[in-house]
């Protein structure tokens, strides 16, 4: 058959290319894991003495535990605040037609494209000017400046596919404004809100440039990793990096699973009888 060998070639090329991309993207994370599994003090490839000593050391450290606590605290605060702001922002963004909407849409997205280190520096100057003491709290504010626009965009996608007639129908069927919100708007938009929350948490969790400038003496994991890389490297750095990376991935997978379970439960209710 003419052409079939050409087709095979094309198929092989697609497979090779895809694998190459995947390896290119995930190899660094894997290297991080490998670098943490050494018993030596320094970073040497190939690894001569394998071991999990540094994992023990890292998890036993009170300093590291505090890092986790600060990072999680910041991320949770950012998530809570940004979801509320972004939800209503997204309704204004994607739902209602009002004068100045188009300008609002552009302005609200602009901070996403600011270089984060510059944004961090600018915020640092502002916090100083306002006389705010730098701590994890100012870090939360800084993260919000960048993360609220992202969460707004994520939730907007869900809002765009929301038929406003659903709310009108509920209202027409006797529901009060609050019942419409609770029974229709919120549950229908929930997947978007959930994604927005996940985005907010993970972007805050992994953020370095904003934290560097604005959390003052409170250390977050990315900040700590950077400091240790600059001076005082131990294999504790890749351990922490691995935990941070795989933790984020795990959270994402759990989030995905939650969405799937919700969907499944819905269709189960459907096939029960």
């Amino acid at each position: 058959m003419p052409g079939s060998s050409a087709q095979r070639w094309r198929h092989a090329l697609v497979v090779v290319w895809t694998c190459a991309i995947v390896i290119f993207m995930y190899l660094p994370a894997l290297c991080l894991l490998l670098a943490s599994l050494t018993s030596s003090r320094y970073f040497i490839f190939p690894i001569t003495r394998w071991g999990v000593d540094w994992w023990h050391k890292t998890f036993d450290s009170i300093e590291i535990r505090q890092l986790f606590e600060t990072s999680i605290l910041i991320a949770l605060c950012v998530t809570a605040v940004s979801v509320v702001i972004a939800f209503f922002g997204a309704l204004a963004f994607a739902r209602y037609n009002w004068r100045g909407r188009s300008i609002y849409q552009k302005i609200v997205l602009l901070p996403i494209f600011f270089p984060q280190s510059v944004l961090g520096l600018a915020l640092l100057l502002w916090f100083n000017a306002l006389g705010l003491e730098l701590s994890w709290r100012t870090g939360v504010l800084a993260h919000l400046v960048w993360i609220v626009p992202v969460a707004t965009l994520v939730i907007s996608i869900q809002v765009y596919s929301f038929d406003p007639a659903l709310e009108e129908a509920a209202f027409d069927l006797g529901a009060t404004r609050w019942q419409v919100f609770r029974e229709v708007t919120l549950p229908v938009l929930f997947p978007g809100i959930f994604s927005g929350a996940l985005f907010s948490f993970l972007l805050s969790w992994g953020n370095f440039p904003l934290s560097l400038f604005t959390t003052g003496a409170d250390n977050t994991i990315p900040k700590y990793l950077y400091a240790k890389m600059v001076a005082g490297y131990t294999p504790g750095v890749p351990v922490l990096g691995t935990v941070s990376t795989f933790g984020a991935a795990l959270l994402l997978l759990i989030g995905y699973a939650v969405i799937l379970v919700l969907r499944r439960r819905h269709s189960d209710a459907v096939t029960e009888e």
Partner: peptide
Amino acid sequence: LPANRRPTCMVFQSLALFPHRT
């Protein structure tokens, strides 16, 4: 009188069925 207090009801062009419900 707002729509939710009128003894009338509409079938919408898009039907507006609640997708998250059976």
